[in-house]
Design a protein around this nucleic acid. Structure first.
Lengths: 348, 348
DNA sequence: CTGAAAGCGCTAACAG
DNA sequence: CTGTTAGCGCTTTCAG
């Protein structure tokens, strides 16, 4: 495997010039540069990443914790996020290292280890929670990071840090408004129990846009654990109401799938149902869903960490100079329900 | 950040002794070892990974290509594989680096780059195909790797390499046999078009175990592209037969979900349907499914690469010494269909 | 703009 | 068993 010295010799320059061609091309005379570049490609030279890292103390690598696979359909979002992250990172010449951890403490320990070896420059935190310990800890330790998920409590908000999130409230409100424009008068809601930041935000979007009074809202909303069965049961309840909803928006695709099945079972296969996250299942069964703009999320996260271009990690934000967060709007993906099995049966 | 020198000084030994304590503890006297260990933890010393890599020319890191997210439910298997891989790797002190690539050529180029920088010691190839170019290329280049997926053609089989796969044929045959023990007399099959190794294997399992003659087999089998809609349509056809199947086994959960919906629509909600891969969707809707033993797959892959313990990559196999592949049996996860929406509707 | 010198932190050889 | 001596390949001073 050739080294800088080999290249230098082949090009008839000093070792340093080669390094300059690679790292600060603008200060090298064009002719020399060409000669060096030629030598590089004819020798098939590749800089040795570890040597460079040892010297520069950076790795151009970002770390992401990869969660244990949770049951439920919604978990897929983080996987898609990881895919996107990898693609964008590759495009910027960054590498992505994944690791697993049993709990937040374990995650912090692993992060420390990865960083001390200069294995990883910066981290992406996913799934922020109420009272997330990670944010304060990493900020105190000076570990550069960006969170996918806004701060959900005042203490965490007070810690100035970088984050990107998707505006679930706006997404749901938009979907509800759209349904009403299509003629829906009573849009139901199936969401999660109160207390999860994400869930409460999404529900707030429904509340703001559904256009019915508090009593009707109480009747038209259900809050259950995430799951197809739960969504099915909740939807069945709503549909059995004296004044049933004429459309249902759900906090997740799992709930929405359940609602869709319940609607069919109740003889209302055309009931508009909207899910959240636009998972593959939604696409597969023809369910409308609110899609998180993961491409934009990832691009924003990398911008925050590394600046608009380049692979130099910026230190965590200290004062209030530039913006350190980004809230992105999701998009409704519309599909026609019922295009599926019913039509597919010959003779129906 | 402390270095070996700091530790050596604190412990009153030479720099080398510290290194020995870390890398060959058995050659250091117990008392000295203790003293060094104490210094290490009191200083919070961590070896610098890049320096070590530069010196030893290995990284204790494995690389995995992460595919662009495909639509369809089945893609989830590779994600779960990645999760498992990360967990097992962490347990062995290995790191996992993910990267994306546009196509197999691009993948090879990226692999070369990652390896030349000593960024990655070995690779895990997923989703092997007919005429997979990667296997020959990596073998020729001497890049250590293990494939998740057996060789599907004679040329690739002739290239001695390490691989792990799941015996889809045995899995399907087992499921069919089980259904027959439960009383099914005509077990149908919905699979993929001929030509995909995986699909053909699974179909062969059905063929071997279904216990009907060739004519009946022809009637009871459908081969369609993967997808819920396709599965639904195929199942509807089978159920409309003069002698319909009394159970259906499918090559994927997507197909099975479609079949399940079709069965309900056709008024046969209790028809046993079995999918493949045991994806979250199957669990969500209560679909039986054949589960790939990913834990075992990953453990076997790492064993093949690194030996039963340790983090030293073995070179690719040359002669026929040890076994270099492993075929694992999947497991049927049984669920009761129909526990879902129908029962959940109040008043039914 | 180009060249020479120094050293990042670590471990593989050797000599004691 | 312990200490000394050399680099791994690269970049960052600092003179020419």
């Amino acid at each position: 495997m050739p080294t800088v010295d080999d290249v230098a010799q082949a090009a008839g320059v000093s070792r340093q010039t080669v390094s300059n061609v690679l790292n600060s091309p603008e200060i090298v005379r064009e002719a020399t540069r060409q000669r060096v570049l030629e030598a590089i490609s004819s020798l098939g030279y590749r800089p040795h990443a570890s040597a460079r890292r040892l010297r520069t103390r950076k790795s151009a690598t970002i770390g992401v914790r990869i969660d244990p696979w949770r049951d439920g359909i919604s978990g897929a979002v983080l996987d898609r996020f990881l895919h996107k992250l990898t693609e964008h990172a590759d495009a910027r010449g960054l590498r992505v290292m994944v690791f697993s951890a049993a709990d937040p403490d374990d995650e912090l320990a692993r992060i420390r280890r990865l960083r001390e070896g200069s294995d990883v420059d910066a981290f992406v935190l996913t799934a922020t929670t109420h009272g997330d310990e990670r944010i304060r800890a990493l900020t105190e330790q000076g570990v550069p990071f960006v969170a996918f998920g806004r701060p959900w409590d005042p203490e965490t908000s007070a810690v100035r840090h970088r984050w990107v999130d998707v505006d679930g409230r706006a997404g749901v409100a938009g979907a509800v408004r759209h349904l009403r424009e299509q003629g829906a008068r009573r849009v139901g809601w199936i969401g999660w129990p109160h207390g999860s930041g994400t869930g409460d935000e999404r529900r707030a979007g429904w509340e703001a846009a559904c256009g019915v009074d508090a009593d009707a809202r109480a009747a038209l909303a259900r809050h259950v654990e995430d799951g197809v069965t739960e969504g099915s049961r909740a939807a069945a309840e709503l549909l059995a109401l004296p004044e049933p909803p004429d459309a249902i928006v759900c906090a997740s695709d799992s709930l929405a799938l359940g609602a869709m099945i319940a609607a069919r079972t109740a003889g209302r296969p055309a009931l508009p149902v909207v899910g959240f996250d636009d998972t593959p299942v939604a696409a597969a069964v023809g369910l409308s869903s609110i899609e998180q703009p993961l491409d934009d999320v990832v691009a924003a996260a990398l911008d925050l960490l590394f600046g608009p271009a380049g692979d130099d990690v910026r230190p965590n934000p200290s004062s209030d100079e530039e913006p350190t967060d980004r809230l992105l709007a999701p998009r409704l993906v519309e599909r026609r329900p019922g295009h599926l099995a019913l039509d597919a049966i010959p003779g129906t």
